[in-house]
């Protein structure tokens, strides 16, 4: 039955503009970084471009592969957490927004398969757009001819971006539960924004490794110097968050009144 649920969840994405919007939104990151690098590499050009150039100068970026990699991981990590929340809100919330949840939940399918199927679709969708963004970044970096290119830097960038994307994915089930409990789009988006705000706060108070939404910022250096590897406690926190999220989403669909 999971196979049929998965097929139908993918069918639901046909002609869906949100998939293209999410790809466009994440792809803007590499283009934005490449533009900044292009400006920063030539200060005269930065001056000619006025405000944009000033901003690029103020950002403290260097036109090197290591700066490019750092900026990309930052965008996939922090921007990605918000974008992924948006995807989760769409996949779960649209069933309530379109009024189709009542049809779906009265089907002869154990309801946990819908939770699992939707989370798998979200995972495939999310990792696909992250891979496209990373590939795009590599191509743009090569096209710019940035100095300092090495296999280690590129592999490190790809690895860290995928790790940050994977960690964000582990937080998705909790957002999915909020979407199912809130029966729509707004509650999960608000929840994700608040959690990201708290993540930033905890990140600056030394508790980053213990708070799920601080762990990506800790990894990529958004709240302090980037760490080479995350402490084991953070992986435990993430595993627990994932399990609680999956269980809560499943229980919400299975036992709560689904009047939406």
């Amino acid at each position: 039955m999971l196979r049929q649920v998965l097929v139908t969840e993918f069918i639901k994405l046909r002609r869906c503009k949100v998939t293209w919007f999410s790809l466009a939104a994440l792809s803007m990151g590499p283009f934005g970084i490449a533009l900044m690098m292009w400006i920063v590499r030539d200060p005269q050009r930065a001056a000619q471009l006025g405000l944009l150039g000033t901003k690029a100068d103020l950002s403290g970026l260097e036109a090197t592969w290591s700066s490019f990699a750092y900026a990309l991981v930052l965008i996939v990590g922090v921007g990605g957490m918000l974008l992924l929340a948006f995807i989760v809100a769409y996949v779960f919330g649209s069933e309530y927004g379109h009024g189709t949840a009542k049809n779906m939940l009265a089907l002869p399918v154990p309801r946990h398969w819908f939770a699992v199927g939707k989370l798998l679709v979200i995972g495939v969708w999310w990792l696909a757009i992250v891979c496209v963004a990373v590939l795009l970044a590599i191509m743009l970096g090569l096209a710019l001819g940035l100095p300092g290119l090495s296999g280690g830097i590129v592999l490190g960038m790809v690895g860290k971006a995928l790790l940050a994307a994977g960690i964000s994915l582990l937080l998705a089930p909790l957002v999915a539960w909020i979407a199912a409990a809130g029966r729509g789009y707004l509650a999960p988006l608000a929840f994700a924004l608040v959690m990201m705000g708290l993540g930033n706060l905890f990140g600056h108070t030394g508790w980053a490794q213990w708070f799920p939404w601080s762990i990506v910022p800790l990894l990529i250096g958004a709240v302090a110097e980037p760490v080479a590897s995350l402490p084991a406690a953070s992986y435990l926190v993430l595993a627990l968050t994932f399990m609680v999220g999956v269980a809560a989403t499943n229980l919400q669909l299975r036992y709560a009144d689904n009047a939406g």
Binding site: I11, H98, T100, N103, A106, L107
Partner: peptide
């Protein structure tokens, strides 16, 4: 539930899918 057909309150469907695709989802899951 596999032996029940139902229509709950207002008629709804996935707006981005055609009539045939909407019914295909129901077919697969029933």
């Amino acid at each position: 539930l596999g032996r029940i057909g139902y229509l709950v309150e207002s008629a709804t469907a996935y707006p981005n899918l055609t009539v045939r695709e909407n019914l295909d989802i129901q077919r697969r899951l029933t």
